[in-house]
Design a binder for these strands. Structure first.
Length: 496
RNA sequence: GAGUCGCUAGCUCAGUCGGUAGAGCAACUGCCUUUUAAGCAGUGGGUCGGGAGUUCAAUUCUCCCGCGACUCACCA
C-alpha cells in the first residue's frame, strides 16, 4: 500500500474501524451469489416479486433520508437497488448508507419496478464483501452521454483494474478480444489444425527480422533470446509429420512502442502441408470475415471513420498491379534503376541512393499505395528480392508466392508458400549472417538445426502470420494497440 | 530515437499578463421513504509532475529532469 494517504482514504479506513466495532467484517471470507443483474432484468415479470441474490461493485448512491437508491454493477451489467430503513432496521440501514461507491457488496432482496419504470431490487439484506478504501473515479451517464469519464490515458493503462471498473465499454472490448481468440482456435481446430507450443526462449532467435530481448539461463550458463517468431519451430513440426499446426501466443521484439507496437504482442502463425498460398488467401478472408459475423454480428464494420466490408471475396491484386492502379507507375515496364528513380520522382518521392528497382517499388507501395487499401485487399506475388523466405513462382522466378492482406490501410498479415529447399535456405541464412556481421542487428542468425530439419524433407506447405492485437483494433474500432492489450508496457513510475 | 502537446483536489477541468488557486462530481455534516448526472443547505480537501535559476515574491517566466499522449522512423 502506498504512503500517500489522502484525507478521503483516511476517512474510509476510519469507517473500517467503526464497522469492525459494529461486528461487521470489511473483508469477509466468502460470499456466494445466485443471480446476475442482466438476467434479472431480462427475466423480470411485473406480477411476481422474485427473490434474488446479487453481488458486485456499488457504482452510485442516492440516499433519501429513510430510504436509499443505489446501483450495483456486476460482470453482466448493473441493476438498481432500493433500501428502506423500515425493512432493514435502523442499524443495518445506517450501515447500508455508509457503504461507499466502489465497495463490493452482496444484496439479497426481491425484484420490483419503480415508479419511473426501472427494474430494481428491494433490499432485504446487504453485506459488505470488500471495502474500497481508494476513491474510484465517478463516471456518470445520461442518455448515453458520459460525464467525468476516466480520461487520463496513462492512469487508465497503469491501473487497468480501475479502467475496467469504471469505463463503460472497456470490459466489453476485452471480452470481445477473448472471444475472437477462442473463435480463431475453434476455427482452426475445426479444420484439422493442431495447436502447439514451441519455445519462447530460444538460443537462436529466428523467423523474422527484428531485434530480440536477451536473457540468461544460470544452470546451463547460456544466453537465450525471447522469440521474435515461432516460425522455424512450427516448420520443424511439418518435417516431423504434423500436417496442420498453429500457435497463437506471444512474440517479443526489442523495438519502439507506438500506437501499433507493443514489445510483446500476440501472433497467430499457422502452417498447412500440401497447400499453397492461394489456399491461405481463402482461409484468411474466410476466417476474418466469419469471425466478424460471429462476434460482431456483421461483416460490414465501421473503423475510424471508414466503412469496411469484410465480405469475401476480397480484392486480389498483384504487387505490380496495385502500384500501377494507385500511382500509374508500371514496374513491368521498368528495367533500370534510373527508370525506377524517375518513377519515384514522378509520384513525389525522394528515395535513397543505393536502392534497387524493387526496393524503390516497395517505397512507392508503402508511401503511396498502402494507406489507400481501406477495403480488404490481398496484395500478392511479391518480388523475390523483398521476400527472403518464400518460394519462387514456377513461371516467373523473379517473383514469389507470397501475399499480404490489407485492411484499413494496414498490413494485417503475411503469408506465403514456404521455402523447403535446404540448399536455398542455407544460402539465404549465409546471406543474413553476412548482413549481421556488417552490423545489421535485425539480420538473422545461422540456424544449422533448422537446415538439418529441412534436409530430412519438409513437405510443400503454406504458412501465414496474423498480428492478433492489430486485428482486434479493427474489431473494437480502436486507433491504439494499447486498447487491445490489458496491460500494455509502460515505463515504470519513478518512486522517489 | 526526433518533433509537438500535456501533467492543477480522488475524478473531469477552469485559472493565475508573477502576489502560494477555483468549479462540477466524489467526500463530510444536516434535511429528505420511488430516486436515477436525485435535490436543498453547509463544511473540509491541493508542496499546481520533480529540481534548479531569475525575482522582494514562482503554480505562472527560464533551464534541466520525469512520465504520458500524438506524429514521424522501425516493425507485425
Amino acid at each position: 500500500m502506498s504512503e500517500d494517504v489522502s484525507q478521503l482514504i483516511k476517512l474510509r479506513i476510519e469507517k473500517i474501524e467503526n464497522l469492525k466495532k459494529s461486528g461487521v467484517n470489511p473483508y469477509p471470507v466468502r460470499y456466494f451469489k445466485d443471480d446476475y443483474a442482466e438476467d434479472i432484468k431480462n427475466n423480470f415479470k411485473d406480477d411476481e416479486a422474485k427473490d434474488v441474490n446479487v453481488a458486485g461493485r456499488l457504482k452510485s448512491k442516492r440516499p433519501m433520508g429513510k430510504a436509499a437508491f443505489a446501483h450495483l454493477e456486476d460482470l453482466s451489467g448493473s441493476i438498481q437497488i432500493y433500501a428502506r430503513e423500515d425493512v432493514l432496521g435502523k442499524e443495518n440501514f445506517g450501515i447500508f448508507t455508509s457503504f461507499d461507491i466502489g465497495d463490493i457488496i452482496g444484496v439479497k432482496g426481491q425484484t420490483f419496478r419503480t415508479k419511473h419504470g426501472e427494474i430494481s431490487i428491494k433490499v432485504q439484506k446487504a453485506e459488505l464483501l470488500a471495502k474500497c478504501i481508494r476513491p474510484l473515479p465517478i463516471v456518470k451517464e445520461k442518455d448515453g452521454q458520459l460525464f467525468d469519464e476516466f480520461a487520463d490515458r496513462e492512469q487508465r493503462y497503469r491501473q487497468r483494474y480501475v479502467d475496467l471498473a469504471v469505463s463503460p465499454g472497456v470490459k466489453a472490448d476485452f471480452i470481445l478480444r477473448s472471444r475472437i481468440i477462442s473463435g480463431i482456435r475453434e476455427y482452426l481446430t475445426g479444420r484439422g489444425y493442431l495447436e502447439v507450443e514451441t519455445p519462447m526462449m530460444q538460443a537462436i532467435p529466428g523467423g523474422a527480422a527484428a531485434r530480440p530481448f536477451s536473457t540468461h539461463h544460470n544452470a546451463l550458463d547460456i544466453d537465450l533470446y525471447l522469440r521474435i517468431a515461432p516460425e522455424l519451430y512450427l516448420k520443424r513440426l511439418l518435417v516431423g509429420g504434423f500436417e496442420r499446426v498453429f500457435e497463437l501466443n506471444r512474440n517479443f521484439r526489442n523495438e519502439g512502442i507506438s500506437t501499433k507496437h507493443n514489445p510483446e504482442f500476440t501472433m497467430l502463425e499457422l502452417y498447412s502441408a500440401y497447400q499453397d498460398y492461394k489456399y491461405m488467401m481463402n482461409l484468411a478472408e474466410d476466417m476474418i470475415s466469419s469471425l466478424a459475423l460471429k462476434h460482431l454480428g456483421k461483416m460490414v464494420i465501421d473503423y475510424q471513420g471508414s466503412t469496411i466490408d469484410l465480405t469475401p471475396p476480397w480484392e486480389k491484386i498483384t504487387f505490380v498491379d496495385v502500384i500501377k492502379k494507385y500511382t500509374k507507375v508500371d514496374f513491368q515496364q521498368i528495367k533500370t534503376v534510373e527508370e525506377a528513380r524517375k518513377a519515384a520522382d514522378s509520384v513525389g518521392l525522394a528515395v535513397a541512393d543505393d536502392l534497387s528497382i524493387w526496393k524503390i517499388a516497395n517505397e512507392i507501395f508503402e508511401e503511396r499505395v498502402e494507406d489507400k487499401l481501406i477495403q480488404p485487399a490481398i496484395v500478392m506475388d511479391y518480388p523475390k528480392e523483398l521476400s527472403p523466405l518464400s518460394k519462387s513462382m514456377e513461371d516467373n522466378p523473379e517473383f514469389v508466392e507470397r501475399f499480404e492482406p490489407y485492411i484499413a490501410g494496414r498490413e494485417i498479415g503475411n503469408a506465403f508458400t514456404e521455402l523447403n529447399d535446404p540448399f536455398d535456405q542455407k544460402a539465404r541464412f549465409e546471406d543474413q549472417v553476412r548482413k549481421r556481421e556488417a552490423g545489421d542487428e535485425e539480420a538473422q542468425m545461422m540456424d544449422n538445426d533448422y537446415i538439418c530439419a529441412l534436409e530430412y524433407g519438409m513437405p510443400p506447405a503454406a504458412g501465414m502470420g496474423i498480428g492478433i492485437d492489430r486485428l482486434i483494433m479493427l474489431f473494437i474500432n480502436s486507433s491504439s494497440i494499447k486498447d487491445t492489450i490489458l496491460f500494455p508496457l509502460l515505463r515504470p513510475e519513478k518512486i522517489d
